[in-house]
Amino acid sequence: MHWLYLILAIAFETIGTTALKTSEGFTRLWPSLLTLACFFSALFLLSMVLKTLPVGVTYAIWSGLGIVLIATIGWIAFGQKLDLPAILGMALIVTGIVVMQVFSNSTGH
């Protein structure tokens, strides 16, 4: 169940960060409320995950996937540019997460 909670926490954090961009500095009501609700949900779910998984591994997965997802959303939804070094860097982040999951005994699986 902790992996499902982690996936949901990442999803809420990603939605919250996207809404934060559209809130225009918390000057628009609905995107601001969505941001707060998503961040609260993400942190609550993350706290549930931390009952089972180590904090370092959990945070590495949460932040790493969040970076990749937000950069991808920025590229698709907001027209933000991703150059080759950015894409390579994100590929390294995903590779690091895969290496942790497949080869590390620290992930709690």
Rank of each mutant, 00 (worst) to 15 (best):
M1L: 14
M1A: 15
H2E: 12
H2N: 08
W3Q: 07
L4T: 15
Y5E: 06
L6N: 00
I7K: 01
L8M: 15
L8A: 15
A11R: 00
T14Q: 06
T14K: 01
I15M: 12
I15T: 06
G16E: 00
T18C: 02
A19K: 02
K21S: 11
K21H: 11
K21A: 10
S23E: 00
E24P: 00
G25A: 07
G25F: 04
F26H: 00
F26I: 00
T27C: 02
R28M: 06
R28G: 00
R28Q: 13
R28E: 09
R28T: 12
P31W: 05
S32G: 02
S32E: 00
L34A: 14
L36E: 06
A37D: 09
A37V: 14
C38F: 02
C38T: 05
F39P: 01
F40I: 14
F40N: 03
A42L: 03
L43Y: 13
L43D: 11
F44R: 06
L45T: 04
L45K: 03
L45S: 04
L46S: 13
S47Y: 12
M48Q: 14
P54S: 14
V55I: 10
G56R: 02
V57T: 12
T58N: 11
Y59K: 11
Y59F: 15
A60Y: 02
W62S: 05
G64Q: 09
L65V: 08
G66T: 06
I67A: 14
V68Y: 10
I70M: 10
I70A: 09
I70W: 02
A71T: 07
T72D: 08
W75Q: 07
W75H: 14
A77E: 07
F78W: 08
G79P: 10
G79T: 11
L84R: 08
P85T: 08
I87W: 12
I87H: 10
I87C: 14
I87Y: 11
G89D: 06
M90H: 03
L92M: 13
V94T: 09
T95W: 01
I97L: 11
V98G: 01
Q101K: 12
F103Q: 06
F103I: 02
F103W: 12
F103N: 07
S104R: 05
N105T: 15
N105G: 15
T107S: 11
G108R: 04
H109M: 14
